[in-house]
């Protein structure tokens, strides 16, 4: 059997993302990376918690945050997490088209989230003159939330690249692990957002 036949079996195994050694290695390695990402975000959360009252006479979190927009953003990201679960469900059933469609919906929801975040930052900068340099609170806020936004951008580019690159290939044992790991990354972005909306926004207006 050639490599091509091995990667394109007639019947997909039940866990296509872990059927090859490369897939298994990616799976373990990626969880290792997520452990490291947790520590990275913890350092940013810790910094934010320490500096959130150092407003340097500028706007405070109570002046700035509007919960309506944050609620919409939370719903968008949470729903996009579910749609990527649907995409992985179709991957396991070896239904490539449906997987691509659900990933497309995930990307659309992610873009909507990103649009809200850009609007939010624009509003703070131009409406309140609250920038990265305004205060220690400003630096900590934009670093933490901006880093999360950067992860969203990276996750979106990752999904789009996978979808375009494999559009004509279809699903096989070579790219199944890639899709699976991109969706893990997307769920992790939602995990971080749950703590951002709780610690930054909800605790910020209390």
């Amino acid at each position: 059997m050639s490599d091509h036949d091995i990667l394109n079996p007639k019947e997909m195994p039940h866990d296509p993302e872990k059927a090859t050694l490369e897939g298994k290695n990616k799976f373990i390695g990626f969880w290792f990376f997520l452990g490291g990402e947790t520590v990275l975000f913890a350092s940013l959360f810790g910094t934010y918690l320490a500096l959130r009252n150092s407003t340097n006479n500028g706007p405070s979190s109570e002046d700035l945050f509007g919960l309506g927009l944050v609620f919409i953003m939370t719903m968008l990201l949470l729903t996009s997490s579910l749609t990527s679960v649907y995409a992985m469900y179709h991957m396991k059933n070896n239904d490539f088209k449906k997987m691509q469609v659900w990933l497309g919906i995930t990307v659309a929801l992610g873009l909507a989230f990103l649009g809200c975040e850009i609007y939010e930052f624009y509003h703070y900068i131009h409406g309140y003159e609250f920038t990265f340099r305004s205060s220690a609170f400003g630096s900590a806020f934009y670093t933490l939330v901006g880093f999360h936004g950067g992860h969203v951008v990276f996750g979106l580019l990752w999904f789009i690249a996978l979808m375009i690159r494999n559009a004509k290939r279809g699903l096989n044992l070579y790219n199944a692990p890639k899709y699976y790991i991109a969706s893990l990354y997307w769920h992790f972005i939602d995990v971080v957002w749950v703590f951002i909306f709780t610690v930054v926004y909800l605790m910020g207006v209390l």
Binding site: I28, W31, L34, T38, A42, S43, G46, L49, A50, L51
Partner: peptide
Amino acid sequence: ELPALMFYGGVFTAFLCIIALAVLVW
């Protein structure tokens, strides 16, 4: 098992990190 070990290792370090920063400031 291994992903859980690695991820919870990260969570434990994250916990220490937040405690340390909080203690430093308060």
